[in-house]
């Protein structure tokens, strides 16, 4: 069977993993932003794989290169200053980075679409929300204006907004409602892959849960694969099947939800967990990660986390290689070369 052609066909498949299930395959992606005086090394060799219907959490601090990774998948990195230096990205078996503008227009919104971080600025203020959804439908389906608008109304209802509000403009909606509209736009053409770039971080906590539930339901309903970009491990635990922890443009730990949560291995992942408040045992002290993200124009040699890492040794300054812990769990930390090494998860107490 020709892998490339059938990859995207919706068809029941046995649960064992085959290449046909892969709807998104990012390989060794390198994205730099070349400015006048300096070069921002945003993404430095990221590889990701997303299967049909699966949810992958991409977790990291602000500036870790998560958004650049997602934009690369749509080939929407702004050039200049952005340059995709290396790597390949295939969506449903089609290579994205070598596509022509016409081909890109075809897959954007249809095969892969994106929910942006800030609903306040991601909607066009002078076009009605119905039209903004209908536009996506018109771009990819042969429908007339009225049909597209009708479908846009369906989408609005799907995300819990009354159909009648399709004629209203973004400024007439609240933040959470706007994010629902953004989700409706992204899901309008039933994409195979949905990239959600911190879809809840601009929203109130109560609205966050609603939006997450909504996304989860819709994903189940439509069988969409979801790349959930977030810095919130709570969100990850709620919706993700697998998790990639990203730091300074690299994936430092990658595994299933259980791998990452119950068998944490990378010191940075540990740091993320330790800086989370624990709702059950309220006594637990928060242990923040010391220091700041390294300046992406002057990344340290070797492991980028090494200057902040309490386990760091001299060898951490050497080039790091990916280590396979188990079939599903990979790691980027040379400290494990020492067979006796393990992280202690909070035991140090700071």
């Amino acid at each position: 069977m020709d892998v490339n052609e059938t990859a995207c066909e919706v068809e029941a498949r046995p649960p064992n993993e085959t290449a046909d299930d892969v709807v998104l395959d990012v390989n060794d992606l390198v994205v730099h932003y070349v400015l006048e005086k300096e070069t921002v090394e945003a993404v430095n060799g990221v590889s990701l794989r997303l299967k049909k219907g699966e949810t992958l959490g991409l977790v990291g601090e602000t500036g870790a290169g998560k958004t650049s990774t997602a934009l690369s998948i749509l080939n929407l990195v702004q050039t200049p200053p952005g340059v995709i230096k290396n790597g390949s990205i295939s969506v449903c078996g089609q290579e994205v980075l070598t596509m022509t503008a016409k081909q890109l227009e075809k897959i954007r919104g249809k095969d892969v679409s994106m929910i942006f971080q800030d609903p306040m600025t991601s909607l066009n203020p002078v076009i009605s929300v119905g039209e903004q959804i209908a536009e996506s439908i018109r771009n990819h389906e042969t429908v007339n204006t009225a049909e597209a608008f009708e479908k846009a109304g369906d989408m609005l209802e799907l995300v819990g907004i009354p159909r009648a509000r399709a004629f209203e403009y973004p400024h007439q909606f609240s933040g959470g409602m706007k994010q629902r509209v953004v989700i409706a736009i992204a899901l309008a053409c039933n994409p195979k892959v949905l990239l959600a770039d911190e879809p809840t971080s601009a929203l109130d906590v109560t609205i966050q849960a609603q939006v997450l539930d909504l996304m989860h339901d819709l994903k189940e309903k439509m069988g969409t694969a979801l790349l959930m970009i977030t810095h919130d491990l709570g969100v990850v635990a709620k919706v993700c099947d697998r998790v990639a922890i990203m730091y300074a443009g690299r994936i430092v730990e990658y595994g299933t939800l259980t791998d990452i949560f119950n068998n944490t291995m990378h010191p940075y992942t540990e740091g993320l967990f330790n800086s989370l408040p624990d709702a059950k045992g309220r006594k637990g002290k928060l242990i923040p990660i010391p220091g700041l993200m390294p300046d992406p124009t002057k990344l340290p040699s070797g492991c980028a986390f090494q200057p902040r890492c309490r386990y760091a040794v001299e060898s951490c300054k050497d080039e790091q290689t990916v280590r396979e812990v188990s079939g599903t769990h990979t790691l980027l930390c040379s400290r494990y070369d020492d067979p006796g090494f393990s992280i202690d998860m909070k035991k140090s107490g700071g």
Partner: peptide
């Protein structure tokens, strides 16, 4: 520079 142009591009609208 605005975000909504990115949204428009992301849904496959032609340049």
């Amino acid at each position: 520079k605005s975000d909504y142009l990115r949204t428009a591009r992301a849904k496959g609208t032609s340049e």
